[in-house]
């Protein structure tokens, strides 16, 4: 869910930039370290970013008839980890605001925080914990991506509520924004989760070694999943 250009008033867009920039700096630091060890990672990251962009510009079939876009960042967090995802999402969000008129430049900080930092970090933490606890891989992917989407939407509602408190109460406006956007976001998150789980199923089927190489799955888990399909 993008906040559009000019929507956040003055102290707030600067604050969200101030919150996001240190995390992005850390992400770039991590990425540079990764790149200096394995140089082949640069083109891979670039095509991954392009993939996220194209994914997020695909229209999901939606029950309500309105067009809805997956964020794609939950999937990216599972595949590449949250630090790299945050850097990629900065570029993706910049391109979305310039190419698709989704989002904006002053609100970039707020959007990066909700879609590129909060969502992916929670999704990654959930995925790692659940896979350690031995949860079914597809269920795990489904939940992690759906949760990433929900966290993104809750954070966006909070950002709007902080900027526009009702009668001095942030909580009241948060409830209101969250309630209204829930009508589109709750089904959308479930759709995105199901879609990502289905994508993972196909990827395991056709090119499971990619997931093993990215440390998403251990090789024994990948073989087990593939055997279960046959």
């Amino acid at each position: 869910m993008h906040i559009f250009e000019g929507f956040l008033p003055s102290p707030w867009w600067q604050i969200w930039f101030a919150v996001s920039i240190p995390v992005i700096m850390y992400g770039i630091y991590q990425m540079n370290k990764l790149v200096s060890q394995r140089r082949e990672i640069v083109p891979l990251l670039a095509v991954a970013g392009a993939f996220i962009f194209v994914m997020s510009s695909l229209k999901l079939p939606s029950v309500t008839g309105s067009s809805s876009h997956p964020t794609g960042t939950g999937m990216a967090a599972i595949l590449f980890g949250p630090a790299v995802t945050s850097v990629l999402s900065v570029i993706v969000l910049l391109y979305q605001s310039l190419f698709l008129a989704h989002g904006g430049l002053t609100t970039l900080g707020a959007n990066v925080f909700s879609m590129g930092i909060a969502g992916p970090f929670v999704a990654y933490a959930f995925y790692k914990m659940a896979s350690k606890a031995g949860m079914n891989f597809y269920l795990n992917v489904f939940l992690a991506t759906a949760i990433a989407n929900w966290v993104t939407y809750v954070v966006t509602s909070l950002q709007l509520a902080l900027a526009f408190p009702f009668e001095g109460s942030v909580f009241a406006s948060f409830k209101m924004f969250a309630l209204v956007f829930a009508t589109t976001q709750v089904p959308l998150a479930i759709m995105e989760g199901a879609l990502t789980a289905l994508i993972m199923k196909y990827v395991v089927q056709i090119k499971g070694d990619v997931l093993v190489g990215l440390n998403v799955l251990t090789s024994s888990a990948a073989t087990k999943l593939r055997e279960a399909m046959e």
């Binding site: 770039i28 670039a46 095509v47 970013g49 993939f51």
Partner: peptide, 20 residues
Amino acid sequence: IPDSFIEISMMMYRYIFVFL
């Protein structure tokens, strides 16, 4: 802005069109 960031955005730009 760090070079690696710009490099990745340039390559990403190219591949957005390929994938689209």
